[in-house]
Design a protein around this nucleic acid. Structure first.
Lengths: 255, 255
DNA sequence: CGACATTTTGAACCTGTTCAAAAACAGTGG
DNA sequence: CCACTGTTTTTGAACAGGTTCAAAATGTCG
Protein backbone atom coordinates (compact mmCIF):
# COMPACT_ATOMS: atom_id res chain seq x y z
CA UNK A 1 0.00 0.00 0.00
CA UNK A 2 1.62 3.17 -1.16
CA UNK A 3 -0.01 5.54 1.21
CA UNK A 4 1.56 8.77 0.13
CA UNK A 5 -0.20 9.30 -3.16
CA UNK A 6 -3.60 8.04 -2.11
CA UNK A 7 -3.47 9.92 1.15
CA UNK A 8 -3.25 13.15 -0.76
CA UNK A 9 -5.90 12.17 -3.26
CA UNK A 10 -8.13 14.98 -2.15
CA UNK A 11 -5.54 17.61 -2.99
CA UNK A 12 -3.26 16.27 -5.71
CA UNK A 13 0.16 17.87 -5.73
CA UNK A 14 0.48 19.81 -8.90
CA UNK A 15 3.46 21.69 -10.15
CA UNK A 16 2.96 25.30 -9.42
CA UNK A 17 4.02 27.69 -12.13
CA UNK A 18 2.49 31.05 -11.40
CA UNK A 19 4.26 34.02 -12.90
CA UNK A 20 5.18 35.81 -9.74
CA UNK A 21 7.57 38.58 -10.64
CA UNK A 22 5.73 41.26 -8.77
CA UNK A 23 8.07 41.65 -5.86
CA UNK A 24 11.69 42.09 -6.67
CA UNK A 25 13.90 40.12 -4.43
CA UNK A 26 16.75 42.01 -2.90
CA UNK A 27 19.39 39.87 -1.29
CA UNK A 28 21.21 42.88 -0.02
CA UNK A 29 18.16 43.90 2.00
CA UNK A 30 16.85 40.48 2.95
CA UNK A 31 16.68 39.68 6.60
CA UNK A 32 17.85 36.19 5.83
CA UNK A 33 21.08 37.42 4.29
CA UNK A 34 23.12 36.10 7.18
CA UNK A 35 21.79 32.59 6.58
CA UNK A 36 21.39 32.41 2.87
CA UNK A 37 23.48 32.88 -0.24
CA UNK A 38 24.78 36.36 0.66
CA UNK A 39 26.65 35.20 3.76
CA UNK A 40 30.11 36.66 3.80
CA UNK A 41 29.63 38.90 0.81
CA UNK A 42 30.41 42.59 1.03
CA UNK A 43 27.62 45.13 0.54
CA UNK A 44 28.71 45.59 -2.99
CA UNK A 45 28.88 41.92 -3.81
CA UNK A 46 25.48 41.32 -2.31
CA UNK A 47 24.12 44.04 -4.54
CA UNK A 48 25.36 42.13 -7.53
CA UNK A 49 23.41 39.14 -6.29
CA UNK A 50 20.29 41.26 -6.51
CA UNK A 51 20.50 41.34 -10.29
CA UNK A 52 20.60 37.61 -10.30
CA UNK A 53 17.84 36.73 -7.91
CA UNK A 54 15.12 38.54 -9.75
CA UNK A 55 11.94 36.67 -9.05
CA UNK A 56 10.06 35.14 -6.23
CA UNK A 57 7.53 32.43 -6.33
CA UNK A 58 5.00 31.36 -3.81
CA UNK A 59 4.09 27.73 -3.38
CA UNK A 60 1.01 26.61 -1.56
CA UNK A 61 1.02 23.84 0.99
CA UNK A 62 1.05 20.50 -0.74
CA UNK A 63 2.20 21.85 -4.09
CA UNK A 64 5.48 20.92 -5.68
CA UNK A 65 8.13 23.53 -6.38
CA UNK A 66 9.68 21.11 -8.82
CA UNK A 67 9.43 17.46 -9.50
CA UNK A 68 11.69 14.61 -10.36
CA UNK A 69 12.37 14.82 -14.09
CA UNK A 70 11.63 18.53 -14.49
CA UNK A 71 14.28 20.39 -16.47
CA UNK A 72 16.70 22.08 -14.15
CA UNK A 73 17.16 25.79 -14.64
CA UNK A 74 17.20 27.31 -11.20
CA UNK A 75 17.86 26.73 -7.59
CA UNK A 76 15.62 28.17 -4.93
CA UNK A 77 16.29 29.96 -1.69
CA UNK A 78 13.49 29.60 0.77
CA UNK A 79 12.20 32.93 2.00
CA UNK A 80 9.46 31.59 4.18
CA UNK A 81 7.77 28.31 4.86
CA UNK A 82 9.05 24.74 4.82
CA UNK A 83 9.68 22.14 2.15
CA UNK A 84 10.35 18.47 2.03
CA UNK A 85 12.43 16.86 -0.67
CA UNK A 86 11.87 13.27 -1.58
CA UNK A 87 13.08 10.68 -4.02
CA UNK A 88 10.79 8.08 -5.42
CA UNK A 89 10.98 4.94 -7.45
CA UNK A 90 8.78 3.69 -10.25
CA UNK A 91 7.09 1.28 -7.94
CA UNK A 92 5.86 3.97 -5.62
CA UNK A 93 8.37 3.59 -2.87
CA UNK A 94 9.47 6.96 -1.64
CA UNK A 95 11.78 8.47 0.86
CA UNK A 96 11.92 11.96 2.27
CA UNK A 97 15.52 13.12 1.95
CA UNK A 98 15.21 16.27 3.98
CA UNK A 99 13.16 19.13 5.33
CA UNK A 100 14.24 22.62 4.37
CA UNK A 101 13.43 25.90 6.05
CA UNK A 102 13.91 29.62 5.50
CA UNK A 103 17.36 30.57 4.26
CA UNK A 104 18.13 27.13 2.91
CA UNK A 105 18.78 26.33 -0.72
CA UNK A 106 17.06 23.59 -2.69
CA UNK A 107 17.46 22.22 -6.16
CA UNK A 108 21.18 21.48 -6.15
CA UNK A 109 20.36 17.95 -7.19
CA UNK A 110 19.42 19.12 -10.67
CA UNK A 111 22.84 20.27 -11.82
CA UNK A 112 24.15 16.78 -12.40
CA UNK A 113 21.82 15.73 -15.19
CA UNK A 114 20.11 19.05 -15.99
CA UNK A 115 16.94 17.55 -14.59
CA UNK A 116 15.74 17.46 -11.06
CA UNK A 117 16.34 14.18 -9.32
CA UNK A 118 13.80 14.64 -6.57
CA UNK A 119 10.53 16.34 -5.74
CA UNK A 120 10.39 19.44 -3.59
CA UNK A 121 6.98 19.86 -1.97
CA UNK A 122 5.89 22.69 0.28
CA UNK A 123 4.61 21.37 3.58
CA UNK A 124 3.16 24.76 4.44
CA UNK A 125 2.47 27.85 2.35
CA UNK A 126 5.89 29.05 1.32
CA UNK A 127 7.79 31.54 -0.70
CA UNK A 128 11.07 31.08 -2.54
CA UNK A 129 13.56 33.22 -4.41
CA UNK A 130 14.41 31.89 -7.83
CA UNK A 131 18.12 31.71 -8.58
CA UNK A 132 18.85 30.92 -12.22
CA UNK A 133 21.79 28.55 -12.25
CA UNK A 134 23.29 29.88 -15.46
CA UNK A 135 23.51 33.36 -14.04
CA UNK A 136 24.83 32.22 -10.69
CA UNK A 137 27.44 30.31 -12.60
CA UNK A 138 28.51 33.36 -14.56
CA UNK A 139 28.52 35.65 -11.61
CA UNK A 140 30.56 33.25 -9.55
CA UNK A 141 33.26 33.36 -12.20
CA UNK A 142 33.67 37.02 -11.40
CA UNK A 143 33.09 36.97 -7.69
CA UNK A 144 35.39 34.38 -6.14
CA UNK A 145 33.78 34.71 -2.72
CA UNK A 146 30.50 33.73 -4.26
CA UNK A 147 31.98 30.76 -6.01
CA UNK A 148 33.63 29.67 -2.83
CA UNK A 149 30.40 30.04 -0.97
CA UNK A 150 28.44 28.11 -3.52
CA UNK A 151 30.88 25.25 -3.35
CA UNK A 152 30.65 25.33 0.39
CA UNK A 153 26.91 25.00 0.22
CA UNK A 154 27.06 21.96 -2.00
CA UNK A 155 29.73 20.41 0.14
CA UNK A 156 27.70 20.97 3.27
CA UNK A 157 24.77 19.29 1.66
CA UNK A 158 26.97 16.26 1.08
CA UNK A 159 28.10 16.30 4.68
CA UNK A 160 24.55 16.69 5.92
CA UNK A 161 23.58 13.64 3.95
CA UNK A 162 26.45 11.72 5.45
CA UNK A 163 24.99 12.30 8.85
CA UNK A 164 21.59 11.18 7.68
CA UNK A 165 23.23 8.02 6.42
CA UNK A 166 24.79 7.52 9.82
CA UNK A 167 21.39 7.96 11.37
CA UNK A 168 19.64 5.59 8.99
CA UNK A 169 22.39 3.04 9.06
CA UNK A 170 23.21 2.81 12.71
CA UNK A 171 20.69 4.37 15.04
CA UNK A 172 17.69 2.89 16.76
CA UNK A 173 14.28 4.50 16.67
CA UNK A 174 14.72 6.48 19.88
CA UNK A 175 18.05 7.81 18.78
CA UNK A 176 16.76 8.77 15.37
CA UNK A 177 13.91 10.75 16.86
CA UNK A 178 16.21 12.41 19.37
CA UNK A 179 18.67 13.38 16.64
CA UNK A 180 15.85 14.65 14.48
CA UNK A 181 14.38 16.85 17.19
CA UNK A 182 17.73 18.23 18.24
CA UNK A 183 18.56 19.06 14.66
CA UNK A 184 15.27 20.84 14.12
CA UNK A 185 15.55 22.86 17.28
CA UNK A 186 19.09 23.82 16.50
CA UNK A 187 18.11 25.12 13.09
CA UNK A 188 15.18 27.02 14.53
CA UNK A 189 17.45 28.51 17.12
CA UNK A 190 19.78 29.89 14.46
CA UNK A 191 16.68 31.58 13.07
CA UNK A 192 15.91 33.19 16.35
CA UNK A 193 13.36 30.79 17.73
CA UNK A 194 13.25 28.99 21.03
CA UNK A 195 15.86 26.38 21.75
CA UNK A 196 13.36 24.34 23.75
CA UNK A 197 10.30 24.21 21.56
CA UNK A 198 9.53 23.27 17.99
CA UNK A 199 6.36 23.15 16.02
CA UNK A 200 6.63 20.20 13.71
CA UNK A 201 5.58 21.32 10.30
CA UNK A 202 5.43 17.78 9.00
CA UNK A 203 3.24 14.78 9.72
CA UNK A 204 4.34 11.70 11.60
CA UNK A 205 4.31 9.88 8.33
CA UNK A 206 6.72 12.36 6.75
CA UNK A 207 8.98 12.18 9.76
CA UNK A 208 8.86 8.41 9.48
CA UNK A 209 9.73 8.45 5.84
CA UNK A 210 12.70 10.66 6.55
CA UNK A 211 13.92 8.59 9.48
CA UNK A 212 13.31 5.19 7.95
CA UNK A 213 10.54 4.36 10.41
CA UNK A 214 6.81 3.76 10.16
CA UNK A 215 4.50 6.47 11.37
CA UNK A 216 3.31 4.30 14.23
CA UNK A 217 6.87 3.93 15.42
CA UNK A 218 7.37 7.68 15.30
CA UNK A 219 4.25 8.22 17.34
CA UNK A 220 5.11 5.52 19.85
CA UNK A 221 8.66 6.75 20.21
CA UNK A 222 7.54 10.31 20.84
CA UNK A 223 5.17 8.99 23.49
CA UNK A 224 7.95 7.00 25.06
CA UNK A 225 10.34 9.95 25.18
CA UNK A 226 7.57 12.01 26.70
CA UNK A 227 6.87 9.31 29.28
CA UNK A 228 10.55 9.32 30.18
CA UNK A 229 10.39 13.06 30.72
CA UNK A 230 12.77 14.05 27.97
CA UNK A 231 10.20 15.89 25.92
CA UNK A 232 6.57 16.86 26.08
CA UNK A 233 4.32 16.54 23.11
CA UNK A 234 1.07 18.32 22.41
CA UNK A 235 0.13 17.73 18.87
CA UNK A 236 2.80 19.15 16.71
CA UNK A 237 4.29 21.22 19.46
CA UNK A 238 7.27 19.50 21.01
CA UNK A 239 9.11 20.83 24.04
CA UNK A 240 12.56 19.55 24.82
CA UNK A 241 12.50 19.07 28.56
CA UNK A 242 15.95 17.57 28.82
CA UNK A 243 18.10 18.31 25.80
CA UNK A 244 21.18 17.08 27.57
CA UNK A 245 19.73 13.64 28.01
CA UNK A 246 18.55 13.60 24.41
CA UNK A 247 22.01 14.52 23.30
CA UNK A 248 23.60 11.93 25.55
CA UNK A 249 21.32 9.38 23.99
CA UNK A 250 22.82 9.72 20.55
CA UNK A 251 26.37 10.08 21.78
CA UNK A 252 26.27 7.18 24.12
CA UNK A 253 27.33 4.63 21.61
CA UNK A 254 25.68 2.07 19.40
CA UNK A 255 23.99 0.38 22.32
CA UNK B 1 32.14 -3.72 20.82
CA UNK B 2 33.60 -1.38 18.30
CA UNK B 3 35.18 -3.91 16.07
CA UNK B 4 36.61 -1.64 13.45
CA UNK B 5 39.45 -0.12 15.38
CA UNK B 6 40.41 -3.18 17.37
CA UNK B 7 40.14 -5.45 14.39
CA UNK B 8 42.83 -3.46 12.69
CA UNK B 9 44.95 -3.25 15.79
CA UNK B 10 47.72 -5.16 14.12
CA UNK B 11 48.04 -2.62 11.38
CA UNK B 12 46.74 0.69 12.65
CA UNK B 13 45.48 3.00 9.96
CA UNK B 14 47.86 5.87 9.80
CA UNK B 15 47.68 8.89 7.63
CA UNK B 16 50.00 8.35 4.77
CA UNK B 17 52.00 11.36 3.74
CA UNK B 18 54.79 10.19 1.49
CA UNK B 19 56.17 12.79 -0.88
CA UNK B 20 55.35 11.15 -4.13
CA UNK B 21 55.95 13.66 -6.85
CA UNK B 22 57.99 11.34 -8.97
CA UNK B 23 55.46 10.60 -11.65
CA UNK B 24 53.77 13.58 -13.16
CA UNK B 25 50.11 12.99 -13.66
CA UNK B 26 48.82 13.85 -17.10
CA UNK B 27 45.07 14.04 -17.33
CA UNK B 28 45.25 14.55 -21.04
CA UNK B 29 46.95 11.18 -21.44
CA UNK B 30 45.23 9.27 -18.70
CA UNK B 31 43.23 6.25 -19.72
CA UNK B 32 40.61 7.23 -17.18
CA UNK B 33 39.98 10.58 -18.81
CA UNK B 34 36.58 9.50 -20.05
CA UNK B 35 35.48 8.75 -16.51
CA UNK B 36 37.27 11.31 -14.45
CA UNK B 37 37.58 15.08 -14.26
CA UNK B 38 38.56 15.60 -17.91
CA UNK B 39 35.27 14.26 -19.32
CA UNK B 40 33.99 16.58 -21.98
CA UNK B 41 37.02 18.82 -22.06
CA UNK B 42 38.78 19.54 -25.34
CA UNK B 43 42.37 18.41 -25.83
CA UNK B 44 43.51 21.88 -24.99
CA UNK B 45 41.43 22.20 -21.88
CA UNK B 46 42.57 18.83 -20.65
CA UNK B 47 46.14 19.98 -21.09
CA UNK B 48 45.42 22.86 -18.75
CA UNK B 49 44.25 20.35 -16.20
CA UNK B 50 47.68 18.77 -16.36
CA UNK B 51 49.24 21.81 -14.72
CA UNK B 52 46.83 21.46 -11.90
CA UNK B 53 46.97 17.80 -11.16
CA UNK B 54 50.65 17.68 -10.49
CA UNK B 55 51.22 14.92 -8.00
CA UNK B 56 50.22 11.41 -7.29
CA UNK B 57 50.14 9.61 -4.06
CA UNK B 58 49.97 5.95 -3.32
CA UNK B 59 48.08 4.66 -0.35
CA UNK B 60 48.53 1.19 1.01
CA UNK B 61 45.66 -1.05 1.93
CA UNK B 62 44.26 -0.06 5.28
CA UNK B 63 45.87 3.37 5.33
CA UNK B 64 43.89 6.58 5.35
CA UNK B 65 44.16 9.06 2.51
CA UNK B 66 42.67 11.64 4.84
CA UNK B 67 40.83 11.63 8.07
CA UNK B 68 37.96 13.41 9.66
CA UNK B 69 39.30 16.73 10.94
CA UNK B 70 42.30 16.96 8.61
CA UNK B 71 42.66 20.34 6.95
CA UNK B 72 41.18 20.27 3.51
CA UNK B 73 43.44 21.33 0.70
CA UNK B 74 42.88 18.90 -2.10
CA UNK B 75 40.50 16.50 -3.66
CA UNK B 76 41.66 13.20 -5.01
CA UNK B 77 40.95 11.35 -8.21
CA UNK B 78 41.43 7.62 -7.86
CA UNK B 79 43.83 6.22 -10.42
CA UNK B 80 43.76 2.68 -9.21
CA UNK B 81 42.46 0.72 -6.29
CA UNK B 82 39.42 1.20 -4.10
CA UNK B 83 38.56 3.35 -1.11
CA UNK B 84 35.84 3.47 1.45
CA UNK B 85 34.69 6.68 3.05
CA UNK B 86 33.15 6.65 6.47
CA UNK B 87 31.81 9.00 9.06
CA UNK B 88 32.24 8.36 12.72
CA UNK B 89 31.01 9.71 15.99
CA UNK B 90 32.83 10.31 19.22
CA UNK B 91 31.35 7.21 20.73
CA UNK B 92 32.86 4.93 18.14
CA UNK B 93 29.83 4.37 16.03
CA UNK B 94 30.73 4.49 12.38
CA UNK B 95 29.11 4.21 9.04
CA UNK B 96 30.61 3.59 5.64
CA UNK B 97 29.19 6.23 3.32
CA UNK B 98 30.48 4.82 0.08
CA UNK B 99 33.03 2.79 -1.84
CA UNK B 100 34.97 4.60 -4.54
CA UNK B 101 36.81 3.15 -7.50
CA UNK B 102 39.10 4.28 -10.30
CA UNK B 103 38.05 7.52 -11.94
CA UNK B 104 35.97 8.66 -9.00
CA UNK B 105 36.66 11.77 -6.97
CA UNK B 106 36.88 11.89 -3.20
CA UNK B 107 37.27 14.66 -0.69
CA UNK B 108 34.43 16.94 -1.76
CA UNK B 109 33.18 16.82 1.79
CA UNK B 110 36.04 19.02 2.93
CA UNK B 111 35.09 22.19 1.10
CA UNK B 112 32.30 23.08 3.47
CA UNK B 113 34.35 23.63 6.60
CA UNK B 114 37.88 23.52 5.21
CA UNK B 115 38.34 20.30 7.09
CA UNK B 116 37.52 16.81 6.02
CA UNK B 117 34.27 15.52 7.45
CA UNK B 118 34.97 11.84 6.91
CA UNK B 119 37.77 9.31 6.64
CA UNK B 120 38.89 7.91 3.34
CA UNK B 121 40.61 4.56 3.75
CA UNK B 122 42.13 2.44 1.01
CA UNK B 123 40.66 -1.04 1.02
CA UNK B 124 43.35 -2.26 -1.34
CA UNK B 125 46.67 -0.76 -2.42
CA UNK B 126 45.69 2.32 -4.35
CA UNK B 127 46.96 5.36 -6.15
CA UNK B 128 45.37 8.79 -6.38
CA UNK B 129 45.95 12.03 -8.24
CA UNK B 130 46.08 15.05 -5.98
CA UNK B 131 43.91 17.95 -7.11
CA UNK B 132 44.54 21.12 -5.12
CA UNK B 133 41.20 22.74 -4.57
CA UNK B 134 42.48 26.31 -4.75
CA UNK B 135 43.93 25.73 -8.16
CA UNK B 136 40.91 23.88 -9.46
CA UNK B 137 38.85 26.78 -8.24
CA UNK B 138 40.97 29.29 -10.11
CA UNK B 139 41.11 27.28 -13.27
CA UNK B 140 37.40 26.75 -13.30
CA UNK B 141 36.90 30.51 -13.29
CA UNK B 142 38.61 30.56 -16.66
CA UNK B 143 37.33 27.33 -18.12
CA UNK B 144 33.54 27.32 -17.88
CA UNK B 145 33.28 23.72 -19.03
CA UNK B 146 35.42 22.71 -16.12
CA UNK B 147 33.35 24.69 -13.66
CA UNK B 148 30.22 23.17 -15.03
CA UNK B 149 31.69 19.74 -14.79
CA UNK B 150 32.85 20.24 -11.26
CA UNK B 151 29.40 21.36 -10.20
CA UNK B 152 27.97 18.36 -11.94
CA UNK B 153 30.22 16.06 -9.97
CA UNK B 154 29.17 17.54 -6.65
CA UNK B 155 25.55 17.42 -7.64
CA UNK B 156 25.82 13.80 -8.64
CA UNK B 157 27.33 12.99 -5.32
CA UNK B 158 24.27 14.52 -3.69
CA UNK B 159 21.99 12.47 -5.91
CA UNK B 160 23.95 9.31 -5.24
CA UNK B 161 23.51 9.88 -1.55
CA UNK B 162 19.80 10.35 -2.03
CA UNK B 163 19.62 6.88 -3.44
CA UNK B 164 21.58 5.49 -0.54
CA UNK B 165 19.10 7.16 1.76
CA UNK B 166 16.29 5.50 -0.15
CA UNK B 167 18.05 2.20 0.28
CA UNK B 168 18.71 2.65 3.98
CA UNK B 169 15.31 4.06 4.70
CA UNK B 170 13.05 1.76 2.79
CA UNK B 171 14.63 -1.46 1.60
CA UNK B 172 14.86 -4.84 3.26
CA UNK B 173 18.07 -6.76 3.56
CA UNK B 174 17.64 -8.73 0.34
CA UNK B 175 16.83 -5.62 -1.62
CA UNK B 176 19.77 -3.73 -0.19
CA UNK B 177 22.17 -6.46 -1.15
CA UNK B 178 20.65 -6.74 -4.61
CA UNK B 179 20.89 -2.99 -5.16
CA UNK B 180 24.45 -2.99 -3.88
CA UNK B 181 25.58 -5.76 -6.20
CA UNK B 182 23.85 -4.28 -9.23
CA UNK B 183 25.41 -0.92 -8.55
CA UNK B 184 28.88 -2.40 -8.20
CA UNK B 185 28.59 -4.43 -11.36
CA UNK B 186 27.29 -1.48 -13.29
CA UNK B 187 30.23 0.64 -12.24
CA UNK B 188 32.66 -2.12 -13.10
CA UNK B 189 31.03 -2.50 -16.47
CA UNK B 190 31.57 1.17 -17.28
CA UNK B 191 35.23 0.46 -16.57
CA UNK B 192 35.29 -2.38 -19.03
CA UNK B 193 34.80 -5.30 -16.70
CA UNK B 194 32.29 -8.08 -16.83
CA UNK B 195 28.66 -7.28 -16.31
CA UNK B 196 28.10 -10.62 -14.61
CA UNK B 197 30.93 -10.88 -12.12
CA UNK B 198 32.39 -8.73 -9.38
CA UNK B 199 35.20 -9.25 -6.99
CA UNK B 200 34.19 -7.63 -3.74
CA UNK B 201 37.06 -5.56 -2.53
CA UNK B 202 35.49 -5.05 0.85
CA UNK B 203 34.69 -7.30 3.77
CA UNK B 204 31.21 -8.39 4.77
CA UNK B 205 31.51 -6.10 7.71
CA UNK B 206 32.23 -3.09 5.51
CA UNK B 207 29.34 -3.98 3.24
CA UNK B 208 27.16 -4.27 6.30
CA UNK B 209 28.23 -0.91 7.61
CA UNK B 210 27.42 0.67 4.28
CA UNK B 211 24.05 -1.03 3.97
CA UNK B 212 22.98 -0.62 7.55
CA UNK B 213 23.12 -4.34 8.25
CA UNK B 214 25.22 -6.59 10.45
CA UNK B 215 27.90 -8.65 8.81
CA UNK B 216 26.04 -11.84 9.66
CA UNK B 217 23.01 -10.55 7.83
CA UNK B 218 25.11 -9.73 4.80
CA UNK B 219 26.55 -13.21 4.78
CA UNK B 220 23.21 -14.88 5.29
CA UNK B 221 21.55 -12.79 2.63
CA UNK B 222 24.24 -13.58 0.10
CA UNK B 223 23.77 -17.25 0.90
CA UNK B 224 20.04 -16.92 0.47
CA UNK B 225 20.31 -15.18 -2.89
CA UNK B 226 22.71 -17.89 -3.99
CA UNK B 227 20.34 -20.60 -2.82
CA UNK B 228 17.59 -18.96 -4.87
CA UNK B 229 19.81 -19.05 -7.92
CA UNK B 230 20.11 -15.33 -8.41
CA UNK B 231 23.83 -15.19 -7.74
CA UNK B 232 26.69 -17.48 -6.98
CA UNK B 233 29.24 -16.68 -4.36
CA UNK B 234 32.73 -18.01 -3.97
CA UNK B 235 34.52 -15.95 -1.44
CA UNK B 236 34.66 -12.45 -2.69
CA UNK B 237 33.81 -13.39 -6.22
CA UNK B 238 30.14 -12.89 -6.94
CA UNK B 239 28.47 -13.89 -10.19
CA UNK B 240 25.10 -12.45 -11.07
CA UNK B 241 23.20 -15.41 -12.44
CA UNK B 242 19.93 -13.59 -12.92
CA UNK B 243 20.36 -9.83 -12.99
CA UNK B 244 16.82 -9.37 -14.24
CA UNK B 245 15.40 -10.99 -11.17
CA UNK B 246 17.70 -8.99 -8.93
CA UNK B 247 16.55 -5.85 -10.62
CA UNK B 248 12.91 -6.86 -10.37
CA UNK B 249 13.45 -7.38 -6.70
CA UNK B 250 14.21 -3.76 -5.99
CA UNK B 251 11.63 -2.41 -8.41
CA UNK B 252 8.81 -4.60 -7.25
CA UNK B 253 7.63 -2.29 -4.55
CA UNK B 254 8.07 -1.93 -0.83
CA UNK B 255 6.70 -5.38 -0.15
C1' DC C 1 -21.15 20.39 11.55
C1' DG C 2 -19.55 16.72 8.77
C1' DA C 3 -16.05 14.34 6.10
C1' DC C 4 -11.43 13.33 5.99
C1' DA C 5 -6.80 13.20 7.63
C1' DT C 6 -3.77 12.47 11.37
C1' DT C 7 -2.39 10.44 15.61
C1' DT C 8 -2.38 7.15 19.28
C1' DT C 9 -2.36 2.66 21.23
C1' DG C 10 -2.73 -2.51 21.35
C1' DA C 11 -1.36 -7.23 20.05
C1' DA C 12 0.64 -10.55 16.99
C1' DC C 13 4.20 -11.17 13.96
C1' DC C 14 8.55 -10.98 11.38
C1' DT C 15 13.01 -9.42 10.01
C1' DG C 16 17.25 -8.64 11.35
C1' DT C 17 20.28 -8.77 15.60
C1' DT C 18 22.98 -10.97 19.07
C1' DC C 19 25.81 -14.41 20.85
C1' DA C 20 28.37 -18.39 19.91
C1' DA C 21 31.12 -21.70 17.60
C1' DA C 22 33.12 -23.80 13.67
C1' DA C 23 35.11 -23.42 9.07
C1' DA C 24 37.69 -21.20 5.53
C1' DC C 25 41.35 -17.96 4.36
C1' DA C 26 45.48 -14.95 4.23
C1' DG C 27 49.72 -13.31 5.66
C1' DT C 28 54.10 -14.23 8.32
C1' DG C 29 58.07 -16.28 9.47
C1' DG C 30 60.69 -20.38 9.81
C1' DC D 1 56.66 -24.32 0.92
C1' DC D 2 54.30 -25.27 5.06
C1' DA D 3 52.70 -24.41 9.68
C1' DC D 4 50.80 -20.97 12.64
C1' DT D 5 48.03 -17.14 13.97
C1' DG D 6 44.69 -13.88 13.37
C1' DT D 7 41.02 -12.40 10.42
C1' DT D 8 37.02 -13.16 7.80
C1' DT D 9 33.03 -15.86 6.75
C1' DT D 10 29.34 -19.00 7.55
C1' DT D 11 25.66 -20.99 10.08
C1' DG D 12 22.62 -21.91 14.15
C1' DA D 13 19.35 -20.58 17.81
C1' DA D 14 17.29 -17.33 20.87
C1' DC D 15 15.90 -12.72 21.15
C1' DA D 16 14.33 -7.91 20.34
C1' DG D 17 13.06 -3.92 18.00
C1' DG D 18 10.18 -2.33 14.70
C1' DT D 19 6.34 -3.52 11.58
C1' DT D 20 1.72 -4.75 10.49
C1' DC D 21 -3.03 -4.74 11.05
C1' DA D 22 -6.79 -2.85 13.43
C1' DA D 23 -9.60 0.28 15.91
C1' DA D 24 -10.47 4.30 18.50
C1' DA D 25 -9.42 9.10 19.45
C1' DT D 26 -8.29 13.52 18.13
C1' DG D 27 -7.82 17.26 14.79
C1' DT D 28 -8.64 20.03 10.72
C1' DC D 29 -10.79 22.26 6.90
C1' DG D 30 -14.46 23.43 3.91
Amino acid sequence: MTICSTARAGRPEKVNHPIVADMRAACSQCNLRELCLPVGLTEEEATRLDQLVSTRRSVKKGDALFRHGDPFTSMYAIRSGTFKTRVNTLDGRDQVTGFQMAGELIGLDGIGTSRHACDAVAIEDSEVCVIPYARLSELSMEVPVLQRHFHRLMSREIVREHSVMLLLGSMRAEERIAAFLLNLVQRMQVRGFSSKEVVLRMTREEIGSFLGLKLETVSRTLSKLAEDGMISVQQRLVRLEDSARLRAMIESGPR
